[in-house]
């Protein structure tokens, strides 16, 4: 069988599909001061999952606000700095109108994912954290 660490090198998706891979990637991102990108990515996925359930509107609004406050509101945050102004405005509008749309974080998640795929992920695969693990 293929060892997990080789699977992690196949794609970002393979890495994020494995608990140990996530943990190691987080260790690396912490060193780079950008672990929030990973948490934001998972928060967006979790939000979408919640969205697919009926009801619970109050919880959805509360969660959308919490995600916005923690990762997007502060322009100096590592996530906020990477998200396009138009995307941030869109999310802010949704929150302001208390209109929690299933797609409200999708664009922001895609932007962060692209950045991880093009930047953090390749760096991770050549990092000491990963190489020592292998």
């Amino acid at each position: 069988p293929t060892p997990p660490y080789l699977k992690w090198a196949e794609s970002l998706h393979s890495l994020l599909d494995d608990q140990d891979g996530i943990q190691l990637f987080r260790t690396f991102l912490r060193q780079e001061d950008c672990a929030d990108m990973l948490d934001f990515w998972f928060a967006c996925s979790g939000f979408r999952k919640l969205e697919s359930h009926e009801g619970n509107e109050e919880k959805k609004v509360k969660l959308a606000k919490a995600i916005y406050k923690k990762y997007i509101l502060d322009n100096s945050g590592v996530v906020s700095r990477q998200i396009k102004p138009a995307t941030k405005s869109f999310i802010k509008d949704c929150i302001g109108k208390l209109h929690v749309d299933p797609a409200m974080f999708e664009q922001a998640q895609t932007e962060i994912q692209t950045l991880m795929e093009e930047n953090s992920y390749p760096l991770f695969l050549t990092s000491d954290v990963y190489l020592e693990h292998t």
Binding site: D17, Q19, I22, G46, A66
Partner: peptide, 20 residues
Amino acid sequence: IDSEDDLLQECISSAMPKKK
């Protein structure tokens, strides 16, 4: 603040893959 953090943490955990 605490409950917001808890909610966020719960949300992040819900999106993580389950232990294989």
